[in-house]
Each structure stands twice: as structure tokens, then as C-alpha cells.
């Protein structure tokens, strides 16, 4: 899996996020305006659909940046 591709999927999963506006260092839980429980749900669904990885809520919340989330998924994914 590739970081840029993940960033675009991340943007698409959370609605109303401008394409190409999210970078790897974004502290998405604190600095993303659209972040809420519905966004968390759609993000978990995207990760499950695209990477066949079911993250727990704790795992998702433990990630500070988008890059940390990307690395976590990568470590759990076979793709």
C-alpha cells in the first residue's frame, strides 16, 4: 500500500474534505474540522473495505497523525 493513495482514500471517506488537502502529518483528531464519531465510523469502514483490516476504536484513537494510522494499517495488512 502506498501513502498518497491512502491520503486520497482518507479524504474521500470523510465527506466534505477538499481533495489533496490532507497530508501525512495532520493531527486528524484535533485539527480536522470534519472529525467526529460519524467520520471515525466511515474511516473504519474504508479501512476494512480497502485493506481488509478491522481496527478497534482504541487503535484508531491511538494514532496521532494520518501517517501513524497509515503505518498501523500497513503493519496489519497483507496487501
Amino acid at each position: 500500500m502506498e501513502l498518497n493513495d491512502f491520503l486520497r482514500k482518507f479524504e474521500y471517506a470523510i465527506e466534505d474534505v477538499e481533495p489533496n488537502s490532507v497530508d501525512a502529518d495532520l493531527d486528524f483528531q484535533n485539527n480536522l474540522e470534519q472529525w467526529d464519531s460519524l467520520a471515525a465510523m466511515t474511516l473504519l469502514a474504508m479501512i476494512d473495505n480497502e485493506y481488509d483490516v478491522v481496527l478497534t476504536g482504541e487503535e484508531l484513537i491511538s494514532c496521532k497523525t494520518v501517517n501513524e494510522l497509515f503505518e498501523l494499517i500497513k503493519s496489519k495488512s497483507n496487501k
Binding site: 464519531s37 460519524l38 471515525a40 465510523m41 473504519l44 469502514a45 476494512d48 478491522v54 481496527l55 478497534t56 476504536g57 482504541e58 484508531l60 484513537i61
Partner: peptide
């Protein structure tokens, strides 16, 4: 109180 993300990942699992 509901933690939507945790409930959702519980459900998916």
C-alpha cells in the same frame, strides 16, 4: 454516552 467508532468496530468484528 456512545463512542460511535468503538461500537462500529465492535460490530464489524
Amino acid at each position: 454516552f456512545m463512542n460511535g467508532a468503538k461500537i462500529f468496530s465492535f460490530t464489524l468484528e
